[in-house]
Nucleic acid binder design. Structure first.
Lengths: 222, 222
DNA sequence: TAGATTGTTAATCGATTAACAATC
DNA sequence: TAGATTGTTAATCGATTAACAATC
């Protein structure tokens, strides 16, 4: 039984819905209409309803959406109802930042291994997680049912390490290296290219300052 | 004299072109056609030509594009021909990771200040950059012509700090906090929401494993 | 019930791809 | 020149928005 292919744009928006629903939960809001949510999130109500209806009808006519139910359902769609074991390859600042971010664990992403090539780092621990040498990688993956690997290493080493991960059976790579990885069809890659993000910011900043953009609306000048 | 508004999709692709051109330069490739580049980058040649022609005609019929020239021109479009002074608010692992990433400096992004609320961090240095207390923020921005601020602090503090940045004249915020910032029209924000990225990866991983997706035939994830 | 709001179809808009004349 | 490849217009495709009947 096949569902319709979900567009990348929709997938990108799902975690944002999830975040706003989490906020609503914390505020103690029990139900919300697509119209109210659209105001908060600054997207159209149509888009919210269209997006959600890719996965099923979670609302009720005349009522709206139950916040807790919708939150749970989107969580399931995103796979947050399961435990994912995660390793981090590259235990520098960025790798440690990820290891230290406690909220990932709340969402089911449990870091249970860190790796590095640096002999000075190997053996020490971050948040109780031991940093291991790269020679332990394959055994560790096989012994610990590792599903996701975060790659926080220089781009020169990234393709070779990605190949090792794939060969060892990892099916999801969270890639922070500034290079595009080539992987088999059954492996998914999510890129976080910080330098590209910063260049985007630079473009927006410069083009706004230099007035390359059309003014789009009657907002005030400061 | 106003240019046509450039779509967000195009802006997102520009840094990727820039990265591939950099690689070509390092390989010593002098010229490249949209067709060759399209094979490398796994996008259509049409898209490359359309994207570039938003900014001008950088190629030559029958020849293609001069790699160095195109690289320089895209760099100018992205604002990489100028020096941007950058501060980092939040000097934890993530802030330090950014401070330590030397390649940003190569692109004109110079980190000249770091801040934190933690008394233990204040006064120490990262890569020669001193970590200061938040009470110095406004004066530092005014005295150092700060253009970009990276926000690597918890989401609870982010909106208040963003307001201070805006009030002090910062026009570009690189936001790593898991919250959407509200800023005036003349301020640009680029978000890096790591938890959303990880959820996206989780979705892709789960939906592929559970076979929710149609096979589309040999397409690659990037 | 009457009012509200969904789920879903139809209309619009924008982005991508294809095609080809211009031209190096 | 002839061949190659751009710049650009036209065609297609997909995503967003609008509209409204269904229904709680």
């Amino acid at each position: 039984m096949e569902r319709k292919e979900i567009s990348k744009a929709v997938i990108t928006r799902l975690p944002r819905y999830y975040r706003y629903l989490d906020e609503l939960l914390e505020e103690g809001v029990e139900r919300i209409s697509s119209g109210e949510l659209s105001k908060r999130m600054k997207v159209t109500a149509s888009q919210i309803r269209q997006d959600l209806n890719n996965f099923g009808g979670f609302g009720q006519q005349g009522y709206g959406y139950n916040v807790e139910y919708l939150y749970e359902e989107i969580g399931k769609i995103l796979g947050l109802d399961r435990r994912h074991s995660l390793i981090i390859i590259g235990s520098g600042n960025l790798g440690q930042a990820i290891a230290n971010y406690g909220n990932f664990e709340r969402r089911g992403f449990v870091v249970n291994g860190m790796f590095d090539v640096d002999r000075e780092l190997i053996g020490s621990t971050v948040r109780g997680i031991r940093i291991r040498g790269m020679e332990e990688l394959e055994d560790f993956i096989r012994d610990n049912d590792v599903q996701i690997a975060a790659l926080t290493i220089p781009k020169t080493q990234a393709p070779a390490v990605a190949d090792r991960l794939v060969a060892a059976g990892v099916k999801a790579i969270w890639n922070f290296a500034h290079i595009d990885l080539t992987v088999p069809d059954d492996v998914v890659v999510e890129n976080v290219h910080l330098s590209e993000s910063l260049m985007r910011l630079s473009y927006l900043f410069c083009s706004k300052r230099d007035g390359k953009h059309k003014r789009t609306g009657g907002m005030e000048e400061s």
